Computed example of a mutant assay.
Amino acid sequence: MQVDVWSDIACPWCYVGKARLEQAVSEFEHGAAVDIRHRSFELDPNFPSDEISPVIPLIAKKYGATEEQIEQNEDRLGAMAAELGLEYRTRGRDHGNTFDLHRLLHLARDMGKEAEVWQAFYRGNFADEESIYQRDRMIDVAVAAGLERHDVVAVLDDPSAYADAVRAEEKQAAALGATGVPFFVIDNRFGISGAQPVELFGEALDKAWAEKPKLETFAAGEACGPDGC
């Protein structure tokens, strides 16, 4: 069973939602058969690639709120993250363009390190003091998660590397009607929007498994198997 997760590294609800999904999978009877895949979605694709800004004043300006209101929201998110065993810095985080992070996640998928790099980028954005949007830090985090430094540098040095792959997944999200993230699709049949409770993810996994299409045999004849022909 495959679960596709459209998310952005800058999205706190994606950080929380992914952890809730993973908890549901760990409690799911058939959890070993579940393959969780990252899909690219940029919340702020027009954010300057050479700019890094403090999160709280940036969000306050965007939504016309006070910094105190945003700080209260960050405190609530921090509490939710803590319940899931996640580290979350409620103050002092930065925001930047996430396109290169998405491109590196596609590299990680090709190298069989998607899960490790995905979580490392989340931790780098939400828990670490040094900004994940600084090129050297981005490289260090990706390498620590299992990628080869020369591969990471090569992708960052080539703006076209995996760019089409990122854009294709963003177009797919739009075609599915996803206007925000996190957005989850189970076995290409069940969609879930938002960082839902663990229990709801569990119910969705049960339903998807129970209703999984069964192969109907049209014809059977002589064949070879493990015990012979």
Rank of each mutant, 00 (worst) to 15 (best):
T98P: 00
T98A: 02
F99T: 04
D100G: 06
D100A: 14
D100S: 12
D100L: 10
D100F: 13
L101W: 07
H102Q: 05
H102W: 09
H102D: 04
R103T: 11
R103Q: 12
L104V: 10
L104N: 05
L104C: 05
L105W: 00
L105V: 00
L105R: 10
L105S: 01
L105H: 00
H106Y: 10
H106S: 04
H106T: 01
L107M: 09
L107E: 08
L107P: 10
L107N: 08
L107Y: 04
A108W: 03
R109H: 11
R109P: 06
D110Q: 15
D110P: 02
D110I: 03
D110L: 10
D110N: 15
D110A: 14
M111R: 15
M111Y: 00
M111C: 13
G112D: 11
G112C: 07
G112Y: 03
K113D: 09
E114Y: 12
A115L: 06
E116V: 10
E116A: 15
E116L: 12
V117M: 11
V117S: 11
W118S: 13
Q119K: 15
Q119C: 09
Q119G: 10
Q119L: 12
A120R: 11
A120I: 05
F121S: 08
Y122C: 01
R123M: 00
R123L: 02
G124I: 02
N125T: 08
N125M: 04
N125F: 13
F126V: 01
F126T: 01
F126Q: 01
A127N: 04
A127Q: 02
A127P: 05
A127W: 07
D128Y: 11
E129H: 07
E129P: 02
E129T: 15
E129Q: 14
E130N: 13
E130Y: 03
E130Q: 14
S131G: 09
S131H: 06
I132L: 08
